[in-house]
C-alpha cells in the first residue's frame, strides 16, 4: 500500500544531529573524568560542539511540525504550570531528554570555559558532566527507540536503538577529530596531535562494532521488503558506497593502527564518518516510508 512520507529530511537531520551532539558530550565527559590533563583538549572540544547540533535538531523538529507554534503542547498541559509528560510516549520522553540535554550541555560548556580561564569550578564541571552524561546516553538511544516503537517492519527491531547509539558515539568522536584537525590546518601544522590519532584508533574500534551491529540488523530484518530495498536497487548506492564504504570501512581502516596522519587526511575521514552517520539515518528513515 502506498504510504505518504510523514517524517522527511528535517527528521533525518534531527536523528543525526541529536546523536552527534550527545556523542560529542559523552566523549568530553569521559575525557574529563578519566583522561586527566592529557585529554583536556578533547574535553573542551567535545563540550564546545555538543549543544549546537542538538539545539539545531530540536529547532528543525519544531519547524517541521504541522503547527510549529503549538510546540509548547509538548511541555505544558492545558492549565497553568502543569508539565506535560506521557511516560508511554517515546517522543514525550525524548522531548524532555533533548530539553534537559541542551540545558545541561550548555551549562557544562560554560563551566568548561570558566574552569579553563579561572582555574576553579572543575569539581562542579565534573558533577554537571556526570548528569549531562546520563541524559546524553539516553538521547543517543532515544532516536532509535522512537522508530523501533512503531509497527513499521524495517524499524521495529530491537537492534535499531543499538545501531543509532553506537553510530552516535562514532559521529561524536569524529566531530571532535574534525574540529581538532581543522585547528591544526589553521595553524599550518604538518601532523595531527597525538591524542587525535588515539581518537581515530578508538573510533576505528567503535566503527568495527557498529559494522557488526548493522550486519546483524540487516540479517535480522532481511525478511522485510523494505530492508531488501535499502540494501538493493532503491537505496543500494547510498547504502553500500555512502554508508558502508565511505562511512564505515574507510574510517575503520584509516584509524586501525592509530598512527599520526596529516590533519587534512583526518579532516576528510572524520567528515566521512559524519556523512555516513547522516546517510544511515536518512536511508533507514526513508526506506521505512516508501
Amino acid at each position: 500500500m502506498e504510504h505518504h512520507i510523514s517524517w522527511g529530511i528535517p527528521v533525518a537531520f534531527d536523528l543525526f544531529l541529536a546523536g552527534f551532539g550527545a556523542g560529542a558530550l559523552l566523549l568530553a565527559v569521559v575525557a574529563d573524568l578519566f583522561g586527566g590533563k592529557r585529554y583536556q583538549k578533547i574535553m573542551r572540544t567535545g563540550a564546545f560542539i555538543a549543544p549546537w547540533p542538538v539545539l539545531l535538531g530540536v529547532i528543525l523538529l519544531v519547524v517541521d511540525l504541522g503547527n510549529p507554534l503549538r510546540f509548547w503542547e509538548f511541555l505544558l498541559r492545558k492549565g497553568p504550570g502543569i508539565l506535560m509528560f506521557n511516560p508511554d510516549s517515546v517522543m514525550s520522553i525524548g522531548v524532555w531528554l533533548l530539553t534537559f540535554f541542551v540545558i545541561l550541555s550548555l551549562v557544562y560548556l560554560v563551566l568548561c570555559l570558566v574552569s579553563w580561564v579561572f582555574a576553579w569550578g572543575a569539581k562542579l564541571r565534573q558533577l554537571v558532566g556526570v548528569v549531562a552524561f546520563c541524559f546524553a546516553l539516553l538521547v543517543t538511544v532515544y532516536t532509535g527507540v522512537l522508530l523501533a516503537a512503531t509497527p513499521n517492519p524495517l524499524w521495529n527491531s530491537v537492534l535499531l536503538p543499538a545501531v543509532f547509539s553506537i553510530s552516535a558515539l562514532s559521529t561524536g568522536i569524529a566531530g571532535v577529530v574534525f574540529v581538532l584537525a581543522l585547528g591544526r590546518i589553521y595553524k599550518r601544522a604538518v601532523k595531527i596531535d597525538p591524542f587525535v590519532s588515539e581518537l581515530e584508533k578508538i573510533n576505528s574500534r567503535v566503527i568495527g562494532l557498529l559494522l557488526l551491529i548493522i550486519i546483524l540488523f540487516v540479517l535480522a530484518g532481511i525478511g522485510s521488503a523494505q530492508m531488501r530495498m535499502i540494501i538493493g536497487l532503491r537505496f543500494g548506492f547510498l547504502w553500500w558506497v555512502g554508508i558502508v564504504g565511505l562511512g564505515l570501512i574507510v574510517p575503520l581502516l584509516f584509524g586501525i593502527k592509530g598512527k599520526a596522519n596529516k590533519p587534512q587526511a583526518s579532516l576528510v575521514v572524520s567528515a566521512l564518518v559524519l556523512l555516513g552517520g547522516f546517510l544511515l539515518r536518512y536511508v533507514i528513515l526513508m526506506g521505512g516510508q516508501i
Partner: peptide
C-alpha cells in the same frame, strides 16, 4: 529496546 540500545 532501550536496554539493548544502552548496553553496547
Amino acid at each position: 529496546k532501550w536496554i539493548v540500545g544502552i548496553i553496547p
